[in-house]
Structure formats: structure tokens, C-alpha cells
Simulated assay, not measured.
Amino acid sequence: MKVLGVLIISAFALTAAYEKAVPVKDMPAGKRINGRITNGYPAYEGKVPYIVALRFESGNGGWNCGGSIIGHEWVLTAAHCTYGASYVNINYGAVWRHQPQFTHVSSDMITHPDYDTGNLRNDIALIRTPHVDFWSLVNKVELPRYDDRYNNFYGWWALLSGWGATSDTSGMTDYLNCVDIQISDNSVCMDYYGSHFITENSLCYATPENKGSCGGDSGGPLVLHDGNRQVGIVSFGSADGCLSNGPKGLTRVTGYLDWIRDHTGISY
């Protein structure tokens, strides 16, 4: 019994050594942020024509996320954004969040059936939309090819974009911002959060300069500089806040290409 007690205590201590992960939309922002999507830079009109601003509504209130256009009738986002929502307002072609080119409303949301609210696994969702025509300010982002499904992308540079919070009191920013990040080895997030949150279907990036996503950026796209394909969906970060220097986790899109294809018919 003493040995069992020691093992239980040791296991608890090992679990407690990891930091808690929370959905990015729920991360505390802190009051020292001076750069929107956390130390990023303003986007120019048309730089990220695939991003959409999402406002979800339910009987218990609403929340903001980001998403990406992947087809004429489809938006890709995080499951923790669609979970519990009754409908969503989709703003297209916006640089100023409240001044989109046009808006659609949808209640047709497909949350991954194995999404786990406890460990944020399978944090991916689809939104079916009315048909959208593409042009310079509103366009789709391509997904990875099937040839890339086993590519870990470690060391690759990619673009994050969104309207994430700038402080505890200001809420989301009105202007779209971007940040360039380098994808890390998953071990960086594994050492921080543990295997409870990090799986082969995760992507990770370190934040030594506090650059990255913050509250309101959930569901937004991570798009490779080389090839302009979306490989990640903003998922979670440290409960200590956006300025904690904790690495951030994303849903790895290559782990869900079959699921996306089965629902949308989109594949490369």
C-alpha cells in the first residue's frame, strides 16, 4: 500500500508539473501588449483574403473567433468556437472587423464528433455557408496536399492573422493584424503541457518574444509562407496568459484531410 501511495503521489506531482492549456479565445491577455495579435503588425487590404471574423451566438451569450475560407460554401475553424453555438455571423473581406465587404449568417455547423472539451483534442469544425464568389479581397486558402500528411513542418515559417484582444479591458482589436511565426517541434509543447493536450494531430510554436495568438484569435488559420497552404488552426495556449511566454498549440490540418474531404468534397 505504501508503494501504491508513493506512485499515486508521484503521478500527481508529474501531472501538476505541466501548465494548464485553455482555448485561445479564453486566454487572459494582460495589459502590456502593444501589438494586437500579440506583438504583430497591421495587415494591408487583401493580404489575407481568406480570413473571416466570426461572431457566435447562443442562448447564453456570444463569443468571437476567426476562421478561414476553404471553398465557395465552406469555412474552417476550431471546434471550441462552434461548440454550443446556435448560429454564427460571418464577416468576409474585412480589415476593419466591423466593416466587412459582406456578411452571411449560418446555423449549419459541423463540430468534429470526437472533440474533447477537456483536452481540446480534435479541435476542428466546419461551417457551411451561402455561396461566396472569390475576388481579390475575398478568396479561399488551399489546404495541404495528401503528400504532406506526414510532414511535421518543423522549422517552417508561417503567417497567423486575426483580431485578437489587446488587453484585459479592451477586448478584440478592430483592425486585422498578422504575425510571422516559426513552427516548433511538438516536444516544445509536450514539455510544457504534457501528452494530455499534445498529440500527433497538434502543431506547436514557441513564443520567446510573446508573438502569437490571443483571445479572439481562436479558429484562425496558420498559413505557410512557402506554398500558402493552411496547416494549422489556432487552438490553445497557456492559462497564464498571452504574455506568459508559454508555447501555443494548434490543430494540425493534415490530420483531418479525410474528415474535411468527406464533408466538403475538398481535397488536394
Rank of each mutant, 00 (worst) to 15 (best):
M1F: 11
V3Q: 15
V3L: 10
I9C: 14
Y18D: 03
A21D: 08
D26W: 15
A29N: 15
G30E: 08
R32L: 12
N34C: 14
G35L: 05
R36W: 11
T38Q: 12
N39S: 13
N39E: 14
Y41V: 08
A43H: 06
Y44P: 02
V48G: 00
P49V: 02
I51L: 11
A53T: 00
L54P: 08
F56V: 00
N60Y: 13
G61Q: 08
S68K: 06
I69E: 03
G71I: 03
E73C: 10
V75T: 05
L76E: 04
T77A: 02
A78W: 01
A78M: 02
T82V: 13
G84W: 00
Y87W: 15
G93E: 02
A94V: 04
P100D: 08
P100R: 09
P100E: 05
P100Q: 06
H104R: 09
H104N: 13
D108L: 05
D108K: 15
M109D: 08
M109R: 04
T111K: 03
G118C: 01
N122L: 02
D123F: 07
D123R: 03
A125S: 15
L126W: 01
L126D: 04
I127S: 07
H131D: 12
D133I: 04
S136R: 13
L137D: 12
V138F: 09
V141K: 03
L143Y: 02
L143M: 06
P144C: 09
R145P: 02
Y146L: 10
D147K: 10
N151C: 10
N152A: 04
Y154A: 07
W156L: 02
W157H: 14
W157E: 14
S161W: 00
S161A: 15
S161L: 01
G162A: 07
G164A: 04
G164I: 00
A165T: 13
T166G: 12
D168T: 11
T169N: 15
G171N: 07
M172P: 06
T173A: 10
D180T: 14
Q182I: 05
Q182H: 07
N186L: 07
V188S: 06
M190A: 10
Y192T: 12
Y193R: 03
I198V: 15
T199Q: 11
N201E: 14
N201M: 04
N201Q: 13
S202Q: 11
L203W: 01
Y205H: 15
T207H: 09
K211D: 08
K211M: 10
G212R: 03
S213C: 09
G216M: 01
S218K: 06
P221K: 03
L222T: 09
V223G: 03
L224G: 13
G227P: 12
R229F: 08
Q230H: 12
G232E: 01
I233M: 03
D240Q: 14
L243Q: 15
N245Q: 14
P247C: 03
G249L: 01
T251N: 05
T254G: 04
D258L: 02
W259P: 04
W259D: 05
